[in-house]
Write a protein that binds this DNA or RNA. Sequence first.
RNA 1: CUACAAACCCGAGCUAUCGCUCCGUGUAAGCGGGGAGGAAAGUCCGGACAGUAUAGAGCAACCCACCGGUUAAGCGCCGGCUCUUGGCUAAGCCAAGACGAGAAAGUGCCACAGAAAAUAACUACUUCCGAUGCAAAUCGGGAGAAAAGGUGAAAAUGUGAGGUAAAAGCUCACGGUCCCGGAAGGUAACUUUCGGGAUGGGUAAACCUUGGGUACUGUAAUGCCAUGUAUAGGACUGUUUGAGGGCGGCUCGUUCGAGGUCCAGGGUAGGCAGCAAGAUCACGUCAGUAAUGGCGGGGCCAGAUAAAUGAUAGUUUAGAAACAGAAUCCGGCUUAUGAGGUUUGUAGUUUU
RNA 2: CGGGACGUAGCGCAGCCCGGUAGCGCACACGUCUGGGGGGCGUGGGGUCGCAAGUUCAAAUCUUGUCGUCCCGA
Length: 130
Amino acid sequence: MPATYSYNKKEKLKSRKLLDQLFTKGKSVSAFPLKVFYGVLPAETTETVQAGVGVSARNFSKAVDRNRIKRLLREAYRLNKTALHDALHAQQKKAAVFILYVGKEKPEFATLNEMMPLVLQKLIAAIAKS
RNA sequence: CUACAAACCCGAGCUAUCGCUCCGUGUAAGCGGGGAGGAAAGUCCGGACAGUAUAGAGCAACCCACCGGUUAAGCGCCGGCUCUUGGCUAAGCCAAGACGAGAAAGUGCCACAGAAAAUAACUACUUCCGAUGCAAAUCGGGAGAAAAGGUGAAAAUGUGAGGUAAAAGCUCACGGUCCCGGAAGGUAACUUUCGGGAUGGGUAAACCUUGGGUACUGUAAUGCCAUGUAUAGGACUGUUUGAGGGCGGCUCGUUCGAGGUCCAGGGUAGGCAGCAAGAUCACGUCAGUAAUGGCGGGGCCAGAUAAAUGAUAGUUUAGAAACAGAAUCCGGCUUAUGAGGUUUGUAGUUUU
RNA sequence: CGGGACGUAGCGCAGCCCGGUAGCGCACACGUCUGGGGGGCGUGGGGUCGCAAGUUCAAAUCUUGUCGUCCCGA
């Protein structure tokens, strides 16, 4: 098991190929203002979950705002990811996840920290069905 | 003292917990250290670096445009010159700006108004001829003439005198502007001055002319390693009757030359170098009016590849709230910017 | 990282090259035709020409800077 609240390089979704697959073929669940794309990781991956975060440049034209939102998303994911990890571990599954912020207002950390567990619960439910 | 405007400076600090990225060390856990900006932005100039090219001629295209300095370079910066505008008040000084070669090579344009907007004759003026008339004068035709005239952004070099039928730089004097030649000062632009000549409206951010200059492409460049597919299908075209490519865009010319173009489909989309010690940073000192440069000892100061600086709590300050996030790197320019500070200017109030 | 185009009335566009009057369609207001609506016809209002500076007698138009929007290539 990795450290409880870590979010380092290995846990990030980095492969351009996987990202393309995720957006073209992957499924998604959403809980406004968050939207999560998910898919299955190749079997040889060592990590249980690889996750990425993103914001649309269309909604936030300034790089400072996008960086800020991505930092908040990473922070929220880092603090709430334990449930997802445990669930996947129990089901012997490995998932690729991409969390997208689709709102148009700059968020507060507190609201993101509330929404993140909700959307992750939805995600766990959706993965359990498939 | 208050308010406003402009320029410049500055662009929060500390503690705890949980995290991110790079480097060092370590088998590992961990430990230690570095970690966004003055604009990192716009991409407007200039370079470094890299690849390709580096026979030639003509044409085209683009850029620059007072002088000197500075620099790796520049359409930057510094200093000066000239002009324009404003102020003080005046033969000067101060401030700001200049896309600051040429309108005396040519072409074009100058609305409205006005006779006329660039080979000026409409009115008025002078004169000659003819007609009418006793005459004054009127009418018609020709010539002279830019001195007077409303207009307009702009009207043919200004004032005075002579001159004439009436006039006119037609002539003269003093000026304005321009050209040529000389002298003095200045590195130069240029300034002052002497002599001679000319008198030509504006516009080149209209075409253009003159002088000078310009290889192209950009770090997703480029070099290397690895993985993988179809030694792979169709159509058209070509192999000395030369397809296609290189030589800056075109033409000529020259050279390489056996493949080239399109359609459909398949695969890869890891990694390493480039990549961060440099036209470097701050300090001191010297040279220079300054920009800037020399010297001295000292420091090492982001380096990712979905892309690192954050979250929470406390605290200091007056309430952490501005503009804003490196992506090859530098030098400039431009634009954005809260609070506070400094300086300058404007306005108002109070006191003397 | 590099390249290009566009900002004109509420909306969509012309005018810009080659400077002097800002125009077209829809929409809007009023009138009229109709018993009324729709529709037709007529009249009218409405524009800091994105912003700033400059050139010029004069700028939507030319030049420079700047802001915004959109597109393209790798």
